[in-house]
Each structure stands twice: as C-alpha cells, then as structure tokens.
C-alpha cells in the first residue's frame, strides 16, 4: 500500500529507477571490461600524446590507466559518470518538481491534509533514494565484471569514497532543478538553470585546464568538487564535500521557504 508522498513518488518512478539502474550498471560493466585493452595499449598512449591539450582533458592522464582504481576513477567516475548521472539527476529533479504542477496533479495532492514542507521534503528524499538505487546499480555493474578481468581489483574503501562523492554530486545536480522547479513552478526555469550548470561545469572542467581564461572560472564548475582520481589517491577533500553538501542544503532551504508560500497553478 502506498502510504506517503515518499512511497508514492518511488512507485511513480519505478520504471525510471529500473531503466537508469540497468543503464548505469551496463555503462559501468562496459567501461570496466575495457580495462585490459586500455592499460596495455601503447598505441593509445602515442595517440593521446599527440592530441591538443584540450582533448587530453577529455581522455585523462595516461598514467591513470595503469592501475584499475585510477582507471575507473578517470574513465568512469571522472567526466563520464558525472555527465550521465547529472543528466539523469536533472531529468529526475525536474520531473519531481514541476511535472505534477504542469499536469494539475499538485493541486489534487495539496487538497489533501498534506503540508507543503512535508511534500517537498518527502519528494526530495525520494529523489535521493532513487539516485542511491541507481548508484547501487553502478556498483553492481563494476563488481559484476571485476572477477572476470585480470588485474582488476579495487579496495572497498576507495570504492566507497568514490560512490559517496558521486552520490553527493548527483544529489547536488538533482537538487538544482528540483529546487528551482519548486520555487518557480516553471519547467523552463528549472531546465535552463540545470543545462547551464551541467554544460557549464563540463566545459569549465574539460577545457579549463588547457584554456587559460576558462581556467580562472574552473572553481565555478560543480565537477571541480569531484576530482575522482584525487579521491582515489588522496581521499575525500572535506572542502569538496562541504561545497556540494552546502549547495544542496541552501537550495533545499530556499525551496522550502518559497514553496510554502507561493501560488500553485
């Protein structure tokens, strides 16, 4: 039985959860299965060396390909996963904030004895739960293939660090459209802000290292606070976690304050 907004949201999104969990698991499994080819391929090294600096940012450091933990950090968790999972989080955040209002369902829910704060928090918690489930799918994809790959071992603690920071980043990516959707009730506003953040972050983080003037703004990228390879080598930088958590918390509080008072279409 569906007992709460939290439960109803998870039920409504069951196919989304299934699809994205399988999708992330497949991507993880695919990238892990490329490990033997990538870390043994000298020709690739030569190719990358001859690339312009800006394109090297897309590939990552060749040294990172020699060890499995830095390989999955650079090839899965760095850039690719944040982009894919970020897009997923944005779709989810928009769906959970403005879709019901656009359809007129939000008034139906608010005509019940359900407070606006409770509704917003339960939906946000459902979003966090969905992101966590898809991350479990990602882990299943990695660990489903690892036993079949020579030399593919990774310390559980390192993987836990990567997953924790990925989760924090995905929640931040999802909270941006979610909060803006709840604040404005407008899909266009939530979509515009999200696209700006994800594309901007991608461009700043990818090309910021090679293009001087972009480099000055690299700290504005959300991806700056998720240095996957550094997390493997040196652990989580507390400041990064605080920034990602802080962005999420501030947006959530502002969303609650505004949503409690605004008109609902």
């Amino acid at each position: 039985m569906i007992r709460s907004i939290y439960g109803k949201t998870l039920y409504d999104k069951r196919f989304f959860i299934l699809g994205w969990t399988i999708g992330l698991a497949a991507i993880a499994a695919l990238l892990v299965s490329f490990y033997p080819a990538m870390h043994q391929d000298d020709a690739l090294g030569g190719l990358v060396q001859n690339m312009p600096a800006a394109f090297k940012g897309l590939i990552g450091s060749l040294a990172d390909l020699s060890r499995f933990d830095t390989y999955i950090a650079s090839q899965l968790f760095d850039i690719r996963l944040p982009l894919i999972a970020g897009i997923m989080a944005i779709i989810l955040g928009i769906g959970l904030s403005v879709a019901d209002e656009e359809k007129g369902e939000l008034r139906t829910i608010l005509s019940l004895p359900i407070g606006r704060t409770k509704l917003l928090i339960e939906r946000w918690l459902a979003m966090v739960t969905i992101l966590a489930v898809t991350l479990l799918g990602l882990l299943a994809g990695v660990y489903g293939v690892v036993p079949f790959i020579d030399g593919a071992t990774i310390d559980m603690e390192i993987m836990a660090r990567l997953v924790a920071m990925t989760g924090l980043m995905m929640v931040a990516f999802g909270t941006i459209p979610f909060a803006i959707g709840m604040i404005s009730g407008k899909r266009a506003a939530a979509m515009a802000a999200s696209v700006l953040v994800i594309i901007g972050s991608f461009l700043l983080s990818t090309f910021g290292q090679a293009v001087d003037w972009l480099g000055n703004y690299e700290k504005l990228s959300l991806l700056h606070y998720f240095p996957a390879v550094d997390i493997v080598k040196d652990g989580i930088d507390g400041k990064d976690a605080v920034v990602l958590g802080g962005i999420t918390l501030v947006l959530l509080v502002v969303a609650i304050v505004v949503f409690r008072r605004r008109d609902v279409a």
């Binding site: 608010l110 004895p113 407070g115 606006r116 409690r260 605004r262």
Partner: peptide
C-alpha cells in the same frame, strides 16, 4: 494561508 492550509483540509 498556503503554508498552513493542510491543517483545515
């Protein structure tokens, strides 16, 4: 008010 309407609902 919108913030407290649910109490009456």
């Amino acid at each position: 008010r919108p913030s407290a309407a649910h109490k009456s609902h």
